[in-house]
Computed example of a mutant assay.
Amino acid sequence: MDDWIDIGGIDAIPRRGARCVVTPNGKIAVFRTQEDQIFAIENRCAHKDGPLSEGIVHGAAVTCPLHNWVFDLATGKAQGADEGRVRTYAVSVVDGRILMAPELALMAAE
C-alpha cells in the first residue's frame, strides 16, 4: 500500500456523508457510513448522471439526490426495481487516513 494515494483523514468526511475527489479522468464519491466504513464509487448516477456525493447515505447505500435511485456502496448495483450500476473503486483506511488505489485515476476513464 506504499504507492496508494492519501486523500485525507477519515474525519474529513462526516458520518453518513461524502466527499468528491477529482481525478484526472473524472470525479469519484468517497462515502463514510455511520459505522465508519469507507466506500468509493463514481460520482454519477446511472439513471440521469446525478451527483451521488450529494445524496443521502443510509446503511451501506446512497440515494441519488435527483430521482431517488438507491445504490449499494459495496457493489455499485441499483437497488429495488431500478436497474443499472455505478463503478466501485478500491479504498482503505490506514491509521485514520483514507487511501485510494494508485490505478484509480486510470480506472475512472474506462
Rank of each mutant, 00 (worst) to 15 (best):
M1E: 10
M1H: 09
D3T: 08
W4M: 00
W4Q: 02
I5M: 03
D6I: 10
G8M: 10
G8F: 11
G9A: 12
I10K: 03
D11R: 06
D11E: 07
D11Q: 07
D11S: 11
D11L: 09
I13A: 00
P14F: 11
P14T: 11
R16C: 12
A18L: 04
R19G: 08
R19E: 08
R19S: 10
R19T: 07
C20Y: 12
C20A: 14
V21P: 03
V21G: 05
V22G: 13
T23H: 11
G26R: 10
G26P: 10
G26K: 11
K27Y: 12
I28Y: 10
A29H: 06
A29L: 08
V30G: 01
V30Y: 02
R32L: 07
T33D: 03
T33V: 06
Q34I: 09
Q34R: 13
Q34L: 13
I38W: 06
I38P: 05
F39V: 02
F39C: 03
A40E: 07
A40D: 05
I41Y: 01
E42Q: 09
R44P: 06
R44S: 13
C45F: 07
A46F: 11
A46P: 06
H47P: 06
H47D: 09
H47C: 09
K48A: 13
K48P: 05
K48V: 11
D49S: 15
D49E: 14
D49V: 11
D49Y: 15
D49L: 14
G50C: 08
P51C: 11
L52S: 00
L52D: 01
S53L: 08
E54A: 10
E54R: 09
G55E: 01
I56E: 14
H58F: 14
A61P: 02
A61G: 06
V62N: 01
V62E: 00
V62H: 00
V62R: 00
T63V: 10
C64T: 03
P65A: 05
N68F: 14
W69M: 09
W69G: 01
F71A: 02
D72E: 05
L73F: 02
T75Y: 00
K77Q: 04
A78W: 00
A78G: 05
Q79W: 01
A81W: 05
A81N: 11
D82E: 14
D82L: 06
E83C: 13
G84C: 09
R85K: 07
R85H: 06
R85F: 10
V86L: 04
R87A: 12
R87I: 08
Y89K: 02
V91E: 02
V91C: 04
S92E: 07
S92M: 03
V93M: 01
V94P: 03
G96K: 06
G96S: 08
I98F: 02
A101G: 04
A101K: 01
A101R: 02
P102I: 03
L104N: 07
A105G: 07
L106K: 15
L106H: 14
L106T: 15
M107P: 02
A108E: 10
A109E: 15
E110Q: 13
